[in-house]
Design a protein around this nucleic acid. Sequence first.
DNA 1: TCATCGAATGAATATTTATGCGATTTATTC
DNA 2: GAATAAATCGCATAAATATTCATTCGATGA
Lengths: 152, 152
Amino acid sequence: MKNQRQEKILELISKYDIGSQDALMEKLRESGFEITQATVSRDIRELKLSRVISGKGQYKYVPPTVLDVSNSVRFNGALAEAITSVDYAGNIVVVKTNPGLAPAVATGIDAQDNNVILGSIAGDDTIFVVTRDEESAGEIANDIKKMTRNPQ
Amino acid sequence: MKNQRQEKILELISKYDIGSQDALMEKLRESGFEITQATVSRDIRELKLSRVISGKGQYKYVPPTVLDVSNSVRFNGALAEAITSVDYAGNIVVVKTNPGLAPAVATGIDAQDNNVILGSIAGDDTIFVVTRDEESAGEIANDIKKMTRNPQ
DNA sequence: TCATCGAATGAATATTTATGCGATTTATTC
DNA sequence: GAATAAATCGCATAAATATTCATTCGATGA
């Protein structure tokens, strides 16, 4: 139930401009979720949504993107937090990050100068790391995962 | 005075983790700005700061730049029309688009959140989609082709 | 089946944030 | 410089959000 509801929340805020938890609660009730503002507040915290000020001066909930990177740029710190998923197939490791941070994270990965990594390319939120073979891809993927689990 | 103060606010939130307007007011007072929470609230609105939830579940004010993603793209007909060709080899699907549109199309492809797709990277007019294996590459390529034929 | 534990939730409330309004300061025009 | 307009801000309070506490619900194991 909770998962389903949080899915719906993401759907709703992408579809409508929702500026308060009460408004979101209303929409959820229209969709058949009988809940209170307290639960909406908790869902918002769990989904890490933020209330931002739009151009027109209106408030609006938006999905999380980047959690502050301004300060520390050590790879093991803030940047590791930007990684949202790691997977691999064949000899390619695919790393997903928060929007815009892929280049920064890729720099960190390249910096490891592992001779198993042939190279990497970063888009906006995705990195392909080409490794020498499938086995190394698995190892590299694992290494990166570890970093995301123990940031800092 | 106001400008100077707002400068200081930006400085403070980059330097410290500030989680409430009261806390920010405190810091400002330490810096010699005798103001109230009301003014802080107004400054925050003008600076378009947002209060986000950090990894550790703490609230924190951050500058706007990073957050502004307001309008996420949906994979609609217009985007499907931008696709000029689809092919695949191994576990990689290669999609060509009209110049400049690859990132937008890639966002749409990613949004499908198919667990067969590991991820994709877009250049200016080309997208690489990495799939779990060769078979799924064929299927994905087909799916994408269908979309281009019947852009809804 | 029952007891137990933990997650999920609502009700009530605390905390935090936004704002209407009037006072005061600052800028502008004559 | 006086008159007027505009911006800024504090106070008080409204509005919005977070959290505490108690309860319920579901899963798990005795």
